[in-house]
Nucleic acid binder design. Sequence first.
DNA 1: GGATTATTTGCATGTTTGTGCATATATGAA
DNA 2: TTCATATATGCACAAACATGCAAATAATCC
Lengths: 100, 100
Amino acid sequence: MDSNEIQDLADLLKALGEVNRLSLVCRLCDCKVPQNAMCLCSCCSVDASGVSRHLKVLAQTGIVHVEKQGRTRNYSLNRAFVATQLRSLASRIESQQERP
Amino acid sequence: MDSNEIQDLADLLKALGEVNRLSLVCRLCDCKVPQNAMCLCSCCSVDASGVSRHLKVLAQTGIVHVEKQGRTRNYSLNRAFVATQLRSLASRIESQQERP
DNA sequence: GGATTATTTGCATGTTTGTGCATATATGAA
DNA sequence: TTCATATATGCACAAACATGCAAATAATCC
């Protein structure tokens, strides 16, 4: 794993590693259909502008997908992407390698 | 997942989500035997005191295990713990639940 | 004992980050 | 067009964080 990969992975983990953002992610876990920000507001203790900013971070790191529709934006989890990244790190951590 | 669990998981992810700490973790991935801080210094761009602090964070969140031996401390990954946490989140993210 | 090595900690500092509020932009509805 | 709703953004601010340096602690070696 080169240093760029480590940096990218760190960005992903950091994005997930904030309570309100993780709450948003967990909320989105349970949703079959994309949700807008107003609807997501209720699950974390920040105002609409805060939620907007958190969702932006999640979108920039590829954790959520945004779909513009009228005056709302609908957010959904990039389930496969996030799960793959987490599982890949889990596997790497579980398998000890060559170093003494 | 209640809010305490979310907070704990966020702490874990935040601890992993800093480049130098993640570099330390990746380095430890490859090691069969516990490593001391001096040895781990070489894999990230901070001085010994910085490494000491990072390792402390990793220990406090249960990511690494510390074993005091003489004047050195030997660090090893809590592989099963970390992998389980990551996989559990991955599973939760992959399986959509009841909410509309 | 004194010197050396490993690690921790206090301090100062600069940076990042999360937040609310007010305002701006954008879109839809009346 | 005017009003209401959804989201984004500029600003200010406090809290958290990463960092290096110097000093402290701890343990081994001579």
